[in-house]
Nucleic acid binder design. Structure first.
Lengths: 229, 229
DNA sequence: CGACTAATTATTGTCAACAATTTGCAATCG
DNA sequence: CGATTGCAAATTGTTGACAATAATTAGTCG
């Protein structure tokens, strides 16, 4: 639906100012890999690219620095952040704790319609698995976890969770996120949704935490495979 | 030791640039209450105050916006963020989960020396309680939780935790944080340190989470008291 | 006298130019 | 021939000025 998209961009332009727009744009550039990991990002280049001056670019870069997508060295520039396995491990440690909270809250608060939404996404992921469409599966996987954290009904939790997982997205560019075997991953999703549908808060929390732990383990296996080759 | 202080300031000026310096300065202004809650912060005013132009000020404000200490309205300016009880509740929800993780990790990883450090701070808090020095107690309380999250040995967790609790500090300005009865609070601290010393990860996690929950309850009581009067 | 409108002022948003710093290259010296 | 020093280009850090928007005040009309 192009109207909705146009509406949101309009809203963005009206409410947010240039730096905010530029920020999400640079974010996309990084997450799509157009700005390579570790690469220096040139302020002037971005400025000409977006047709602005360097001021808004710098403001946007400060925000991205705060969200740890880039790091900045004085007088040398900002670089797309390279995330180590050790740091990914740290993130997963926190994520597991948050996922447990999310599972519990969603089981307590989700409406029947929201539960159906979750089940629908899981079904779509099954279909994507059948067609071996890994790209589609990945997008749906993101959507699933986005829905979950939203349905937890805690804006600050959402914000914290998104900030953390954004760092993990950098890992996807190295092909280390959810490496291989995504059919297994979806069975975990199903178990989570079942627990939520049964209003089993403790169980949903435990299962979602477990899912995060399994995801972490998959990352480790993928990392071990790539480094050993 | 002035030399050490001079060294750190030198490092600060060398490594960080003006916006970073300005950022912590404005942060202090907010946290000390010199910039009142809800008040609009004037860019030009800050610029003349710090002897810079508005550019660095704006960059600093974007960072503070990202850390939710200020909010920004287009063409109207940035305002010191006013935090509602509902939002504080959201933060506490996340904080409880993180505190559990922190307690567990510290119990697993803390060195004997670190455990002594924690016990020492608790003893100091006891002393402050005896002298009814609430300001000192509050500072020590912050230090205690800072040490804890540091000793958990997870940089990303530290970052996430600090970001969250920074929002709670805004509440202190309204006198709603740990309102009254801080002797009780310290007995909770003692229990946590005991569990850590006993290397009881699960117990320390449970106790630290409980401590956060109690802190939240104290906030609610303080809020109820001020609004009812 | 109150309410609406228009000008004025203050403040933010953006820009282009200047200063300071780093980096790459070349020339020089041991 | 390698290392080092000095120069030149590129890039970041910072600034002051200009444009656009919101807040305020004065003035006018009903």
């Amino acid at each position: 639906m192009p109207q909705a998209a146009a509406l949101t961009t309009l809203q963005l332009v009206q409410s947010n100012s240039l730096p905010a727009l530029v920020q999400v744009e640079i974010e996309q550039l990084i997450l799509r890999g157009e700005l390579a990991i570790g690469q220096r990002v040139n302020e002037s280049e971005l400025a000409t690219r977006f047709g602005t001056s360097r001021g808004p670019i710098r403001e946007a870069l400060r925000v991205l620095e705060e969200s740890r997508l880039v790091r900045s060295e004085k007088n040398r520039g900002v670089f797309v952040r390279e995330i180590s396995i050790a740091e990914a491990d740290e993130i997963y440690d926190v994520r597991e704790a948050l996922d447990q909270l999310i599972g519990q809250r969603v089981a307590e608060r989700a409406t029947p319609e929201q539960v159906r939404d979750l089940a629908a996404v899981v079904a779509e992921m099954d279909a994507a698995t059948g067609m071996h469409d890994i790209k589609c599966y990945h997008a749906l996987n993101l959507k699933f976890h986005d829905l979950l954290v939203d349905f937890a009904g805690n804006a600050r939790l959402t914000e914290t969770y998104r900030l953390l997982t954004k760092g993990l997205l950098l890992f996807r560019l190295r092909g280390l996120q959810d490496g291989g075997g995504f059919a297994v991953s979806n069975s975990e999703h199903k178990a989570v949704v079942d627990a939520i549908a049964a209003r089993d808060g403790a169980g949903a929390g435990r299962l979602l935490r477990l899912h995060a732990a399994e995801s972490r383990a998959r990352m480790h296996r993928a990392a071990a495979a790539t480094t050993s080759i």
